[in-house]
Design a protein around this nucleic acid. Structure first.
Length: 264
DNA sequence: ATGGTTGGTAGCCAA
């Protein structure tokens, strides 16, 4: 089973890319972030025509996440618990039935947090990460196959940036940010890409500005965390870098994992 | 050199 995360940066502006990618990459489950639309304006019919079930947690203008799945959804939960006042659409989870039991997949869009001297923005990022850790702690107690996929807006290590010195003042590379990501991982997750390669050139995002793509000025911020039950069936990960060279690309590319589960 | 680019929006903001 192929599970992919992709920050699409506007699903309506990227519909041609999305349908082409779904046909080419053929994921079983695709986690999208930054769909930047309300549910009613999501291009549902075009995606369903390709054989996908669609569950959306949209928002006007910004944010918004979705899960597309060839498997039927047994359950869908929208929003990250822990703050009833948080109205940003950044988290959706789906539960599926497989030959090995339940598979839970979350699509998350972690707050950017910049600029770090804006106390509201950076503290929102850190408190969101603390909420995510509490949520993960609870879910791991279920001992299910769980894939926590999305745009984490976290550069975990120096090798995850082509020019790490450029990111020292950025919310994505702050010590507190990196520590919060380590804390999450250390609950017992396997981070898929780093489990299969130590290569530095595994970027998932290249800014639109200043020719970042042409200079390979990239960072690795899109991640898939696997619970032990998922990690034990994990065989490979891939970064679909060629998508960044398409016409009208997102600034992120899809990141995929292959897990030995079959739909039932 | 504190630059530049994109999407969604009508707040130039968020990234």
């Amino acid at each position: 089973m192929k599970i992919v995360t992709w920050n699409i940066n506007g699903v309506r502006a990227r519909l041609g890319n999305l349908t082409h990618w779904l046909t080419e990459s053929a994921p079983d489950i695709a986690c999208l972030q930054e769909i930047k639309t309300v549910d009613e304006q999501f291009p549902r019919a075009e995606i369903e025509a390709l054989g996908y079930n669609v569950e959306i947690y949209g928002q006007k203008g910004f944010n918004g996440v979705a899960i597309l799945s060839k498997l039927r959804f047994d359950e869908v939960i929208r929003g990250l618990p822990g703050d009833d006042a948080d109205e940003q659409a950044r988290f959706i989870e789906g539960v599926f039935s497989t030959d090995k039991g339940a598979l839970r997949v979350a699509s998350l869009y972690l707050p950017n947090g910049n600029p770090i001297d804006d106390e509201k923005k950076f503290s929102y990022k850190l408190s969101w990460m603390a909420r995510l850790e509490r949520w993960a702690e609870e879910r791991l107690m279920l001992e299910e196959a769980l894939v926590l996929a999305g745009d984490y807006n976290v550069i975990p290590e120096y090798i995850d940036a082509r020019f790490p010195e450029n990111w020292l003042g950025d919310a994505l590379f702050q010590p507190q940010t990196r520590q919060a990501f380590r804390r999450l991982k250390n609950l017992g997750f396997t981070e898929a890409v780093r489990a299969v390669t130590d290569a530095p050139d595994t970027y998932t995002f290249w800014d639109y500005q200043a020719g970042a793509w042409q200079k390979n000025n990239g960072i690795r911020i899109d991640h898939l965390l696997l619970s032990p039950e998922a990690a034990n069936r994990f065989s490979s990960a891939s970064i679909e870098k060629h998508v960044r060279a398409w016409e009208k690309p997102s600034d992120h590319v899809p990141v995929a994992v292959e897990l030995a589960f079959a739909p039932i």
